[in-house]
Design a protein around this nucleic acid. Structure first.
Lengths: 182, 182
DNA sequence: ATAGACTCGGACCGATCGGTCCGTTAAGCC
DNA sequence: GGCTTAACGGACCGATCGGTCCGAGTCTAT
């Protein structure tokens, strides 16, 4: 079974905060709620995370780790840029289909704090840019032009926003786009 | 020249609130800021809008009126479902390209208040459903299948989310999708 | 001039925000 | 058992939240 992290540990607090932040939004969740969900004292929370902004940044970093782990696993068995692109979009589709899906954590944060340029906002932007760059790289390996990369990125953004019922449409479309024309 | 609305009027207050809500987000803007921007007293604000939720609902209703006016104008000269679909997406592209674009007001609200089911949230959902239904209707008139409607909706969602530089890509793609195959 | 209606600005309310601090309690460790 | 360490829970802080209320001032109509 999975190792149970010690109560009051940094990991426990961060997990509790991440769940609340993702479900309700960072702005909507107060530090008191985080403390209550984590089952620890405010004291300990502020020892691990000196401010709400740093807790939010750690939340986004945690989500990024999870996303990258999931993406790495999805891309493990994909060989070549074509399969890797399909796997990349398919992995996002799996995320969107998951019950309790509430949108992309990074896009959500940038919507909640639009205009801000604090640490978590920069982390969110960095993730989006890196993902976009990954799409560009794979399309380049595949020999595709910038238009193809733009179109796939358009689908990815639409996939993140849209209802889960659109996930299959997005994946199938990308498969079609990256398949050699008959 | 444009008629200047009376200071302290409902229209003046709503316009000021709408600008702040759209730029910074509804949660991030306090009623005191609205009052300050509107140049009126709190008294008058709460006479016209009995609560912040009602002000937010009026803000979304205002945006909806503007969006529908702009869409009607864009669709005025389009004849037939093909041109109307292209015009519909092109009008959204114009919005996205506008300086100061901060995303779709309705999607932003639903992100900020995810999980809530108050009056403004229902208004936002209704707008999105109506727009999606409009796409379905036009695709149906054109003789397209559900897949085409899903794909166009995917592009629309991606267009709203993506950087303005993607606007042309989205419009050109929709043109290609609805054009009769050679 | 005077009365009335209306507005602004701000004081004010209870609640909650992020964040600090401390008394109590409990868990090690010798 | 006694000592140390540390976490919990909550009181507490100033600021801000949405929302109410009132005094002072303005304008108009008579």
């Amino acid at each position: 079974m999975a190792r149970t992290p010690a109560p009051g540990s940094r990991e426990t607090i961060l997990t509790a905060a991440a769940g609340l932040f993702y479900e309700h939004g960072v702005r909507a969740v107060g530090m008191a709620q985080v403390v209550e969900a984590a089952g620890c004292g405010k004291n300990l929370l502020y020892r691990h995370f000196p401010s709400k902004a740093e807790l939010a940044a750690a939340y986004l970093a945690l989500v990024r780790r999870e996303r990258e782990r999931s993406a790495d696993e999805a891309l493990r068995w994909a060989t070549g840029p074509r399969d890797r692109l399909i796997a990349l979009v398919g992995e996002i589709a799996d995320l969107v289909r998951r019950p309790g899906y509430r949108g992309c954590a990074f896009r959500n944060y940038l919507t909640e704090f639009r205009g801000d340029d604090d640490t978590p906002a920069r982390a969110a932007k960095a993730y989006l840019e890196d993902t976009r760059a990954e799409v560009d790289r794979l399309v380049g390996e595949l020999g595709g032009d910038e238009l193809l990369a733009d179109r796939i990125w358009l689908i990815v953004n639409g996939l993140y926003a849209g209802p889960p019922s659109q996930a299959d449409v997005a994946v199938d479309w990308v498969k079609e786009l990256v398949s050699p024309e008959r």
